Simulated assay, not measured.
Amino acid sequence: MKQYTGYIGTYRSVQSNHIYRFVLDAESGALTIPEPYLPVPDSKYIALRDDSVLVSTVRREQGAGLAVTNLRLPSPHVTAEALGDPGAGCHVAIAEDHVFTADFHAGTVTCYRLNGLQPIQEHTIAIAPHAGCHQVLFHNDLLLIPCMELDECRLFSAVDYQPRGVIRFPKNSGPRHGIFDRAHRYLYLVSQKDNTISCFAVQDTHFSLCGRLPLLDAPVSSCDEAAAIRFSPDERFLYVSVRGAEQIIVLEANGSQMQILQRIDCGGQHPRDIALSPDGHWLLSANRCSDDITCFPRDAVTGLLGPLCSRVPIHEGVSIVFDTTEKGR
């Protein structure tokens, strides 16, 4: 039986103050009930490097910042922490020996260097209070930071952290999360406020808009908000979650050409994050407000999602990562 181990970060609450671990049966799509794995409160966003180094946001009584652990330790424990952030971040991204946390409310991005597993705070990029910094993306020697409340994606040098440009979006669109294809020829970025997806052709450090597409035919609720975006393993399909509408949108992506193929109910409320299994056969949705994870089968040829096949409870679930090492056979 093939299995994949997944980890999910959570908002801090009486019922959720850990990073949790679960197992996905790669043949049936069945999920185990997530169990507490690491005592990391406010682990809203987590990221994994090389299937061994797990980083997450953290907020404790003495401060907020970054928690780091090695998943290959005989017994799980937080290896090191740095608590120099103004508040708990909403996103964390890892690239080789550097980690970045984005703080939505403070409008800052904190840059850490990993000395072994010890995070050393190097620099804070201060954009503007309440700028809505919601992600950090890497492109060549650039950092891209979508700023939801500024309707901009700010560009900074990954070497000296100086400003390197701006990608502007329509007023009140609210750029939130983006993803590059592996060749970095295209950048796809979803906007939370107007529920659109934008495609930019990328040439060196230039980003040219070549398409923008509404994710919804019409508003479903007064609080429709696009959130996460993920690629299929073959990069033919994109998957976007929309909260309020409680939908997962399936798009065919052929360079600048985007086409919506399917809109499917996420099976819960407030799909904060979505993740594809390492083999691409399953899509999971972390539904924060219904306190569950749902799982859907995925057709690798058509990209379409099948009916809900599994659901397990988890309080305040936010972000999902997979250990891509297969277990079993």
Rank of each mutant, 00 (worst) to 15 (best):
V136L: 07
P146S: 09
R154F: 08
V159R: 15
I145H: 02
C153Q: 06
C153P: 03
L155I: 14
F156C: 10
L143P: 00
Y161K: 06
D151Q: 06
I127Q: 00
Y161S: 08
C153N: 05
H134K: 04
N140Y: 14
I127W: 02
N140T: 15
Y161L: 12
E122T: 09
L155D: 11
C153S: 14
V136I: 07
L155G: 07
L143R: 01
R154G: 09
Q162V: 15
L143A: 05
Q162N: 11
I127F: 05
H139S: 13
A131D: 03
E122M: 12
E149D: 15
M148E: 08
L142P: 02
H130E: 06
A158I: 12
I145R: 03
N140M: 10
L137A: 12
E122A: 09
I125T: 05
P146W: 00
D141W: 05
M148T: 13
S157A: 14
C147D: 04
I127V: 15
H123W: 11
H130N: 10
H134Q: 02
A131R: 00
F138M: 14
N140S: 13
H123I: 02
Q121E: 15
L144G: 05
I127H: 02
M148L: 12
Q121T: 15
A126T: 14
C147F: 02
F138S: 09
L143S: 05
L137Y: 05
A128C: 10
L150K: 05
Q135R: 05
V159Q: 12
L150C: 02
L150H: 06
C153I: 08
G132W: 01
E122F: 07
F138T: 12
C133M: 04
V136C: 01
Q121Y: 11
G132D: 04
D160P: 01
D160N: 12
H134D: 03
A126F: 08
A131V: 06
L150D: 00
L142C: 14
L137C: 09
L142Q: 07
V136T: 03
F138E: 10
I145C: 06
P146Y: 00
Y161R: 11
H130T: 12
D141N: 13
A131M: 08
C147G: 03
L142Y: 07
L143F: 07
A158V: 10
T124K: 07
D160A: 04
Y161H: 09
P146F: 00
C147H: 03
T124A: 12
A128Q: 10
Q162Y: 13
H130L: 15
F138P: 00
N140D: 14
D141V: 12
Q135N: 01
T124M: 14
A126M: 07
H139K: 11
H134I: 08
F156K: 03
I125W: 01
D151N: 09
L150Q: 06
H134R: 00
H139V: 11
A128V: 10
T124H: 09
H139W: 04
C147T: 06
C147V: 00
P146V: 01
G132R: 01
